[in-house]
């Protein structure tokens, strides 16, 4: 038989499929980011400044610009590292270590979503929402802000669900054959983090 190596090919297939999906997803995000710049550059009313909008830090106080979102960014990047560690340990057949790191990844993901909800709630109390903004400002600022962070948030949620699924799978399995699955989940997770870095730069910082 000259198609004996089908099984190996199968792994490569899933990896390529994941990459193709990510490339496609990049284009969706690029669509949103382009809309962001188009609206901002053509704005005829005041486009709010990130330093002024995002000053809220829960528990501490109210006026440290961009502190909260920096923390959020930081923990999300941390989760990328723990995801990497989990795959790394799995490759070395250390199941328990891998599970611990994966657990941290899931935990941080949930924390991120929690922080984002806090921020959304706070913003909506301050009068920012789809179609709403404090008077005199360009309403599309809040529109595009919630659209992009919301779309990203959905990606994080999906990522968390994939991670939980694979956590259970690894926990239950007898032979360790989930490396490729874990690796692909990792790719997705790193991608979601990377996108957040861009969102942080474009929407919060500049």
């Amino acid at each position: 038989m000259n198609d004996i190596h089908l099984n190996k090919i199968n792994h490569q297939n899933w990896k390529l499929m994941m990459w193709l999906f990510l490339i496609s997803d990049i284009f969706t995000f690029c669509g949103f980011i382009n809309v962001f710049f188009a609206l901002r550059l053509n704005s005829k009313t005041i486009w709010p400044n990130g330093d002024i909008v995002f000053t809220y830090v829960p528990l501490i106080g109210y006026n440290i610009p961009l502190a909260f979102v920096t923390i959020m960014t930081f923990i999300l990047i941390m989760s990328s590292i723990s995801m990497y560690a989990s795959t790394y340990e799995y490759k070395k057949s250390k199941k328990i270590n891998s599970l611990i790191w994966l657990f941290f990844t899931i935990l941080i993901g949930i924390m991120f979503i929690f922080c984002q909800s806090l921020e959304w709630i706070h913003l909506s109390n301050k009068g920012y929402w789809f179609g709403k903004i404090p008077i005199g400002h360009n309403v599309n600022y809040s529109n595009i802000f919630f659209a992009i962070t919301g779309f990203h948030g959905i990606h994080v949620l999906i990522g968390i669900m994939i991670n939980i699924f694979i956590f259970i799978k690894i926990y239950l399995e007898k032979r360790m054959h989930s490396y490729n699955f874990l690796n692909n989940a990792g790719l997705y997770w790193h991608f979601v983090d990377l996108i957040w870095v861009f969102i942080f730069t474009f929407i919060y910082l500049i």
């Binding site: 496609s24 284009f27 669509g31 949103f32 609206l39 179609g131 309403v139 529109n143 659209a147 779309f151």
Partner: peptide, 25 residues
């Protein structure tokens, strides 16, 4: 298709927001 349909997806999502959520993209 892989590279162009996602952009329509973005456009459609924003259109849905315009229709139902009071945004004005």
């Amino acid at each position: 298709g892989l590279l162009s349909f996602p952009v329509l997806m973005a456009a459609v999502i924003l259109l849905i927001l315009d229709r139902g959520f009071g945004t004005s993209f």
